[in-house]
Design a protein around this nucleic acid. Structure first.
Lengths: 218, 218
DNA sequence: GGGTAATACTACTTGTCAGTAGGTAGGCGG
DNA sequence: CCGCCTACCTACTGACAAGTAGTATTACCC
């Protein structure tokens, strides 16, 4: 009954600030992804991080600041993951294919990041929603540029029934939706997911039911 | 300085319960769609409804009950709107076309309903999220059945690169995403939106850039 | 007109949570 | 070994929001 049976408060290792900030951000992403912004409490985040609440405030600022830091870190991760897989000198369909594969790989590996970015970020209203919406709009315009470049390369200009941005919005949404669906079907690889989507958007149902198949070219 | 200059408290007309319930639900949908479930306060809802807070509790129950009532009413509205436009004896592409048109018409007319169903319902976690997810899953399987029926009609069975459910998930997500996009472009009619999507999913980019166009058959 | 039930309100309790005040402890230069 | 800075904590405050108790008012039927 000396100090032995009293659990030594091992938690109080004095770590450098950078490490603590990482721990806090990791915990915050986890909790925000589970409960959403409003239902997440700073107490729970501090618990999960293994740190007391004032630490969060001294290191990362207010709850909104903390959420913003999460969003920005995860968004950067996502963008870097996608850019790492893209090769700009390939034809449009292959660029899209590689982008999609990287995207699905990221979602599978960092599901919580994806949940925060996709579902929770929009519920905060105000500055962050705008930020996320902007990023998504940029992604859509990137895809739109890809599509339009594919079109003009073949000599097709703007047509009545052909709006690059609308199509790109659908495509991005379809990709996101398939990502959500894939969260419930973890046995399906990123390659297969990307293939499905390429078949859908590049060939269309009409070709698919005729037996056509899109394949990545070597 | 009789009772004339004191604004008569006109608000206190005694209305039948059914009318009040409608007012409350309308207000709730509005407020929930603006702030999301957690950030919405019962006080604000009662304000918007022109009714005091206890009325909400006696008529519609707790905050969660109220939200559930909103979700169910709006979901029913949406489903009815879509079913009203569908004709089951048409070929698959035409069925899809009509369903999409009705969907976009609904979203344009009841944007707040759509926002609550699409964005906010998932942030409550638990029973409602499951309910919404189920409804969406049913929609996806409906579309999947449509796609598969289109496939089998042409004699194409299950292939390696052809998963009806995954494709349907993408399609539904694409349709939703285009609906969101259309909220910022209110000048584009539901017919045009549905056409874009039909061109995308039925023909695919590859056909589109060759100049092909999907048109509803008479 | 008078009773009664539905309609409606004001004013409270209670709990939760963001944010903070003020203090402890371990490393480190001198 | 002594001050001092940084990491870290417990314990609080203040605000806001869900839900309720108790009461007042009017429509409507006989």
């Amino acid at each position: 009954m000396s100090e032995e049976d009293q659990r030594p408060p091992e938690r109080a290792r004095r770590l450098p600030r950078a490490v603590r900030e990482r721990q806090i951000l990791d915990a915050a992403v986890q909790v925000f992804s589970r409960h959403g912004y409003h239902a997440a409490s700073m107490d729970e985040i501090s618990d999960v991080a293994g740190v007391s609440k004032p630490m969060i405030y001294t290191y990362l600022g207010s709850k909104e600041d903390l959420f913003g830091a999460c969003i920005r870190r995860e968004a950067t991760r996502l963008l870097e993951a996608i850019q790492a897989g893209v090769q700009p000198d390939l034809p449009p369909d292959m660029q899209l294919w590689h982008g999609l594969r990287s995207f699905y790989r990221f979602v599978a590996e960092y599901r919580e990041s994806w949940t925060v970015l996709h579902r929770q970020a929009l519920t905060v209203g105000g500055a962050f929603a705008a930020e996320i919406t902007d990023m998504r709009a940029r992604a859509i315009q990137l895809v739109a540029a890809l599509v339009v470049s594919a079109g003009t390369r073949k000599g097709v200009g703007e047509q009545a029934e052909f709006s690059g941005e609308g199509l790109a919005a659908s495509l991005v949404g379809g990709a996101e939706s398939l990502a959500d669906w894939a969260l419930d079907h973890p046995d399906i690889s990123d390659g297969v997911l990307a293939s499905w989507l390429m078949n859908l958007v590049w060939l269309g149902f009409n070709d698919l039911i005729e037996g056509a198949v899109w394949k990545p070219s070597e």
